[in-house]
Design a binder for these strands. Structure first.
Length: 275
DNA sequence: AGCACA
């Protein structure tokens, strides 16, 4: 019985389990000429990334993707950093990312690439053709939220196949899918070596946060501010990279004092004043 | 859904 009590949020007090167990993201809003490689390049830099798959749903030219991470937090962090991002300035397509209904069961095969393509376009037309080299059996691992029922649009059987199934080579240099305006700006988000932490419980203290944050390299200081309402905190780090690591590691995780959900962590708008 | 301290 892996049943979680929906009415008791305290079943996951361990920082390692600061989530509902879902580590896969559902991605829509993709242009229909998207390549699996692009999905891979979009997510591969995100901490905790494991693998991804591009799926032609068979509904027209609809394309969705699933990205799997090592845990819920890293999936959440990636979702937060990429959701709403304008993916293609030409077509104006904007990424819509949410937690998948279920985790990807497809394990990354050793020696094969970190991404895979599932093409249901022909299946929808009654044709049983496999995308190259796919393992037989279930090729479905996840279901899109709000994707119940099979509305067969027996249309579009254009074979735009090939090239996506290629194994990604070690091209570490040719990836500018994510817009980097300046070193400190990614996807239009200004990064900062100070983090802003919200969604804290009313009793959250500096000490509690310090205990959680101090194990991370580069941690300098944390301050909780209450301003009457719910507290927020600012955590300062040596550099942006260290701050990012902590944000990715702790995004969505619960503290003992949490009562409204896990921590919501963003880059602060300004650096903590030097002391 | 909330960003201070100088």
């Amino acid at each position: 019985m892996a049943h979680q009590q929906p009415f008791d949020p305290y079943f996951l007090h361990q920082p390692d389990y600061g989530g509902n167990g879902i580590n896969t993201l559902f991605v829509s809003g993709l242009p229909d000429d998207i390549k699996a490689r692009e999905i891979h390049n979009l997510f591969r830099r995100r901490p905790g990334f494991d693998s991804c798959q591009l799926k032609y749903t068979g509904r027209g030219n609809q394309v969705v993707a699933f990205a799997t991470f090592v845990n819920h937090q890293s999936a959440l962090a990636a979702m937060h950093s990429l959701n709403g991002v304008k993916f293609d300035p030409q077509t104006g397509s904007v990424l819509h990312i949410e937690m998948a209904r279920s985790n990807s069961r497809r394990k990354r095969k050793p020696g094969s690439g970190a991404y895979v393509v599932i093409d249901n376009r022909n299946k929808a037309a009654g044709d049983a053709q496999e995308s190259s080299g796919d393992d037989s059996g279930e090729s479905e691992a996840d279901e899109a939220p709000g994707d119940k029922g099979d509305i067969d649009i027996t249309k579009s059987a254009e074979a735009v196949d090939g090239s996506e199934t290629a194994v990604p080579s070690e091209n570490e240099q040719a990836e500018k899918t994510v817009n980097v305006v300046s070193e400190d700006t990614v996807d239009g988000v200004s990064r900062c070596s100070t983090l802003f932490i919200a969604n804290l419980g009313p009793n959250c203290s500096d000490d509690e946060l310090k205990k959680v944050l101090s194990p991370y390299s580069g941690f300098k200081a944390v301050k909780v501010r209450s301003r009457g309402g719910m507290p927020v905190a600012f955590a300062d780090f040596e550099g942006i990279e260290q701050a990012t690591q902590v944000m990715d590691a702790l995004q969505g995780s619960w503290l003992e004092s949490s009562d409204r959900g896990g921590m919501h962590i963003e880059y602060a708008r300004s650096k903590m004043r030097k002391s």
